[in-house]
């Protein structure tokens, strides 16, 4: 008896993350194809109100693990409760976003369940035998591998923006099942002391529709304000190349690339970035790429849909003015 396509609905500070809407929407399509229910799992404290939203994005059923012990993510507590739930309910598949949280949780969970895991996948092929095939970038994005998971539940973590979130349907309802959070004491060996979030008015890099990044061509920390000015006109996130991060101009967590965040916005603007393979691995899937670089031979132009050969200190402020005009139109 098929037990459904399950989605881990990740929340932060009581808000469902965008990736989870993408997964629910795609999960709905897969469930319709394989004739199974779509099931959401929500973990946290005081998160019951999120079940309705999960239903609107397609969930037929919602498992709710709501407990003060689950208020903040810890590997042990989440692994403990999810292992029990997945062992009891035996879903076909359990999909998570490839977020910082799941990068830590998924391998721990997979190993405890004794199953395979396809991480950082970008596509799912549904085949007749109700079997899902996972596509993932490997070798710095220079190749793709297609992975079959031979164990159940099929576990996968999915890269942000691989799928499109559909419009929520406010009339949709889901059955909500509350599950008691039983955490094995042995799973509480790591103690969370503190969580420090960077306060910013800008969207998260992986969630933003527009990302504007600066590289070594920015020349100094204070010059990033010209990118911030441009970003704020269109509600964009600001990112950076590793050279800019290594120079200490911007915090580590704004690095785009293989060893930073992987982004796929509708619009990516690279300013003073040469276009190294490790940078492209992190933004090459963007819908439209713009390069602003004074070197006409910079490799970034090979992947850019539109390029401006010029001095970014001249071009970026002009672009800010042009974008302002567009936004005000």
């Amino acid at each position: 008896m098929p037990k459904g396509i399950w989605i881990f609905v990740e929340q932060a500070a009581g808000k469902i993350r965008k990736i989870s809407f993408e997964l629910l929407s795609q999960g709905r399509k897969i469930a319709d194809q394989t004739g199974e229910p779509l099931v959401a799992v929500i973990i946290g404290e005081k998160v019951a109100n999120l079940a309705k939203e999960a239903a609107e994005y397609g969930a037929d059923k919602v498992y709710l693990l709501d407990s003060p012990q689950l208020a903040q993510y810890t590997t042990g507590a989440y692994t403990s409760v999810l292992t029990k739930l997945l062992r009891n309910e035996e879903p076909q598949a359990f999909l998570m976003g490839h977020t910082a949280l799941a990068k830590d949780l998924a391998p721990r969970l997979a190993q405890r369940l004794g199953v395979g895991l396809a991480s950082d996948i970008i596509d799912i092929e549904v085949n007749q035998e109700k079997f899902l095939l996972f596509k993932r970038p490997v070798f710095t994005g220079s190749a793709f591998s297609f992975v079959e998971i031979l164990t159940k539940p099929l576990l996968a973590t999915v890269r942000a923006k691989s799928f499109v979130a559909s419009e929520p349907d406010p009339t949709r309802q889901a059955e909500v099942i509350e599950v008691a959070a039983e955490i094995d004491p042995g799973d509480l060996k790591v103690i969370l002391k503190d969580v420090a979030l960077i306060v910013t008015s800008r969207p998260a890099l992986t969630e933003a529709d527009i990302v504007i990044s600066g590289g070594r061509g920015m020349k100094a920390k204070e010059n990033f304000t010209i990118l911030e000015d441009l970003a704020d006109v269109v509600g964009a996130a600001v990112g950076a190349s590793r050279a800019a991060v290594d120079s200490g101009w911007i915090d580590n967590q704004f690095q785009v690339g293989q060893t930073g965040s992987i982004v796929a916005p509708t619009l990516y603007i690279a300013c003073g970035i040469s276009g190294a393979i490790q940078h492209i691995a992190g933004m090459g899937a963007s819908k439209v790429i713009i390069a602003i670089n004074k070197d006409p031979d910079a490799p970034i132009f090979n992947v850019a849909d539109y390029g401006i050969v010029g001095d970014l200190f001249e071009v970026v402020p002009l672009l800010t003015e042009e974008f302002k005009k567009l936004v005000n139109e």
Binding site: A100, L101, K189, D194, V195, L197, A204, N252, Q253
Partner: peptide
């Protein structure tokens, strides 16, 4: 530890 949007401090 790097988490989405910030840093978590953990002890073990």
């Amino acid at each position: 530890r790097v988490i989405d949007g910030g840093l978590a401090t953990l002890e073990v």
